[in-house]
Write a protein that binds this DNA or RNA. Structure first.
Lengths: 354, 354
DNA sequence: TGTGGTTACACAATCGTTTGGGTAAACGGC
DNA sequence: GCCGTTTACCCAAACGATTGTGTAACCACA
């Protein structure tokens, strides 16, 4: 309220200055001095008059004019595979919140997980002169990253990590381990993995974490039990089909590295007459808001997506300011629900209720 | 490729000009003339030299400098309740695609469906000098809209409509009618609605369309059968709880105006021992990618979310150019799946297979 | 040879800020 | 009363593009 303004031709520094009979530069300095006393710039009486008039006239500085001079836009570019993926959307919400708190604005674009598009979108952002980039879709062998670094462009990774570059991610290795522990403890010995896209560190780390821990516990996990797939429901459906129709005995548990893949798998299992949570245990990843609300609630590893987004933005700000930053890996937490609550060997959840 | 550039101090118009021994204004005109012959600006020989050098040096115009002069930023502001809602995220993808095609960039912010935040975010966008706004979270009695119009700010609505203002939406009334027809034809006579938030035109229109058609068909729909709720799974769960525990006979079918609310309802029904698709029919709205993939596939009304996004952006562009635009309401389509495939009165889907 | 019309440019102002460098006037200390 | 310091300002040059207005040179044509 108040800052309504006529808004037809916005009021400028010069307007304020001429109305007060002082120089625009003085107005600028007053409006920038955070402390009450505009140190050396103006008397506190003048400063007060300037501030009052600025509010009264609804002055709002022209960001492009300022950027032109300062070579800073206070805009950030965010590139994600697709915003309709709730995982990335939630991370973006964290980015946006932290950005708004720090007077940054953000552009977002989808790369559809194509390295070509990723590069193209990055160039668009840079042509917009963003101060830095947040990349949510790095591929394992990306050559974009060294390139950006060589051009001294500030950036951080989110969601997926890449050795040698700063990132804010979930500790996916630990996430995989949590699931291995859980399934082992509930008595499962024959499991399959729906492993996700092999170019994404999320998929690789979750799979690696599970695999390593499973072996440490004494379990077996042949390569044929690890099915690489897309991250969406359709991918999960196909992977589950492969698992169910593979020769040999079906596994008693399945770990899908993504909730949506898990949901797809649910459909397949049901179509094959298997009841999830009884005939076959299922665990997802990310603990999407949906997981707990499904008809058969899905066990899932919660990754702090929103916080990851916030962290990434704050890290980027520090990179922009020339500081050194360390990657952060945020700790995940397993939520066990009906889809994997029963122990293996056909003991139903009745045994839990007693 | 090619446009790599040293990028340390980007090359400017002046650089190109002095290298060619001509005036910056000539370079500017050449680079802007779309036709091969730079009409009156330069000889085609010079024009070619300019264009070649621009490519060679990786020239990319500084958008803030251009904006400062032209008073156009080629940036748009998009405000949505929350991007983690897949419906809005998908619409945004459409916006972003159309924007990119037309050399616009977009800022997105979440308003969390709060009118205060909506106004605050709009002001932030306007302070950024966006050329126009796309609002995805208008509330029924919003006073922001007349205000923006009075300030001559170009904007269009998306997702939710508001009388007297241009919008791109799904024809939600028709969507409601489709569901009424379907449930009536499959023999249902006792239905309940999970109606969504009463300040959203989507909820109001879908409910109104259903209600009107249902009555036209001869059905009854007491007010107590219309439960207003939040748009998420939790809201659906609560609403379904109300429906199931209401005195009197339970309905044989439920229409949830949102897929997520429908999924929440599924959980509740299951907890009460009701099998969706057999004991109770359920229809959602939006045909989210999840709907078809659920363990019990959910009937849903598909709204062309992506196209709505594209349309909205193109409309806004026309508004910015001072043209008059008409609201568009895009036609939805009902997809019947297992959750409502069986006819009422206990006849199972066996009868359909015959 | 003069006139009128193009062609191919150059010039300079402008958009709204920021910021390095003044400079008068007031002030304080001795 | 002199000198040094602070205070409170003003001035002007950027930043990189766009665009209205010149204006030489050239051409065609009578």
């Amino acid at each position: 309220m108040g800052a309504r303004g006529q808004s037809r031709t916005p009021v400028t520094l010069k307007d304020l200055a001429s109305e007060l009979g002082i120089h625009p530069s003085t107005v600028s300095r007053v409006l920038h001095s955070t402390s009450d006393v505009a140190r050396g710039a103006a008397s506190s009486a003048t400063a007060q008059k300037v501030r009052d008039l600025a509010v009264e006239r609804g002055y709002s500085p022209d960001p492009q004019a300022a950027s032109l001079r300062t070579r800073r836009t206070r805009a950030l570019g965010v590139i994600v595979p697709r915003l309709s993926d709730i995982v990335l959307a939630t991370m973006y919400e964290g980015i946006e919140e932290a950005a708004a708190e720090n007077n940054y604005s953000t552009f977002v674009m989808n790369s559809h997980d194509s390295t070509d598009e990723q590069r193209r979108k990055a160039e668009i952002m840079l042509a917009r002169r963003v101060d830095g980039l947040i990349l949510g879709d790095v591929h394992a062998g990306s050559d974009l990253l060294p390139d950006l670094r060589a051009r001294h462009i500030p950036f951080v990774l989110i969601n997926r990590r890449h050795p040698g570059f700063p990132s804010a991610t979930c500790d996916d290795v630990v996430g995989g381990e949590l699931v291995a522990d859980h399934l082992w403890q509930t008595g499962h010995r024959s499991v399959s993995l729906i492993a996700g896209e092999p170019y994404a560190s999320t998929a690789l780390d979750r799979t690696a974490g599970f695999r390593q821990r499973w072996r440490d516990l004494g379990g077996e996990l042949p390569d044929s039990s690890v099915i690489w797939s897309r991250f969406d429901t359709e991918g999960g459906r196909e992977a589950a089909e492969t698992i169910v129709t593979q020769p040999g005995p079906a596994p008693t548990a399945v770990f899908a590295v993504n909730d949506f893949a898990a949901i797809g798998a649910m459909g397949t299992f049901r179509a094959h007459g298997l009841t999830v949570g009884q005939d076959i245990a299922l665990v997802g990843f990310n603990d999407t808001s949906l997981a707990a609300q499904l008809p058969i609630p899905l066990s899932s590893v919660r990754s702090p997506m929103f916080q990851i987004g916030r962290q990434a933005m704050l890290m980027l700000q520090r990179v922009i300011n020339g500081e050194q930053v360390e990657s952060v890996r945020m700790t995940p937490e397993l939520f066990v629900r009906e889809s994997s609550a029963a122990s293996a060997h056909g003991e139903s959840q009745r045994s839990l209720a007693s």
